[in-house]
């Protein structure tokens, strides 16, 4: 299974080390001999990856904290609230999970354009105001459900407001979930393609993931170059996930 899921990534790295502009190989030749590191220098001619990286980093820097705050507040409210408010929160989260993103592209652009929020580097970060995806809200709800109710009630009896209970009791107890959602949100904003494609028109404001688009029109013989671009775009996301994977799975599976 590790092999099955790991193969595409391994192939990506191997491909990025092959020499560009070779005749089509005869048979399967995956192993680069010798590895051609110069692709990582040459890719700069096709992809202004320095600026693209900066744009991506800026988006992540803003969107990740906002996502964590909004999603954890919502997850906490779902676990602790009762009655109409709870049903409303669950309903909206479910609706978000089951509305195809494509149905929202057009009207979302219209709304944000009216508000003057389109075609900025940070336009994409607007989505973090809704917790980015309901999956994160669910992760937080699962994590907060592990906190014994009596602990939260005891804190409230001490005179803490619901906000203070969230901030000083629930959130510290759900640290793995915070780490997990932060990492996932980073990966999301690092990877997102559709949102900048519809919301950001100016190429100098694109994030890296969208910048890769230009590479897809290159000659097939240049595949090592565009795979190099793919590796550069993938590496930070994979690193972030590897750092957070323990917290992520323990949060999702409710173990500590």
């Amino acid at each position: 299974m590790v092999l099955l899921f790991g193969a595409p990534l391994a192939v990506m790295v191997l491909g990025s080390l092959q020499r560009p502009l070779q005749p089509p190989p005869d048979g399967l030749a995956l192993w680069p001999d010798p590895p051609s590191w110069s692709n990582y220098r040459d890719v700069g001619a096709f992809l202004p990856w320095g600026r693209l990286l900066l744009n991506s980093a800026l988006v992540a820097l803003v969107a990740v904290p906002v996502t964590v705050v909004v999603a954890s507040l919502a997850g906490f409210a779902i676990v602790t609230a009762r009655g109409r408010m709870r049903r409303l929160l669950v309903g909206v989260a479910l609706l978000m999970a089951f509305v195809p993103a494509a149905a929202l592209w057009v009207p979302r652009v219209v709304v944000l354009r009216e508000l003057g929020l389109t075609d900025r580097t940070l336009s994409v970060a607007v989505l973090s105001l809704a917790g980015t995806t309901p999956f994160y809200v669910l992760l937080f709800a699962l994590a907060f459900a592990q906190v014994p109710r009596s602990v939260l009630e005891a804190a409230e009896l001490e005179g803490l407001s619901p906000y203070a209970v969230w901030r000083r009791v629930a959130l510290p107890l759900a640290r793995p979930a915070v780490g997990a959602v932060a990492a996932l949100a980073f990966v999301h904003y690092w990877s997102t393609f559709m949102d900048p494609l519809t919301l950001v028109a100016s190429p100098q404001r694109w994030p890296l993931a969208l910048g890769l688009r230009g590479l897809s029109e290159m000659e097939a013989a240049l595949y090592p170059i565009f795979l190099t671009g793919a590796v550069i775009a993938t590496a930070p996301a994979v690193l972030a996930f590897l750092v957070a994977q323990r917290a992520f799975f323990s949060a999702a599976e409710g173990r500590s």
Binding site: V69, V70, A71, L73, A74, F76, A77, I78, T80, A81, R82, G83, M85, R86, L88, L89, V92, A93, L95, M96, V99, A103, L104, P107, R108, V110, V111, L112, V126, L127, S128, L129, A130, G131, V137, S161, P162, Y163, V165, W166
Partner: peptide, 23 residues
């Protein structure tokens, strides 16, 4: 429940802006 529910407000407002209003 009632008071804790307000903590969900930012999420609802955000969802309104990028999901419900566009819908």
């Amino acid at each position: 429940g009632a008071r804790a529910g307000w903590l969900g407000l930012p999420f609802l407002l955000g969802a309104f802006l990028v999901v419900l209003l566009p819908l």
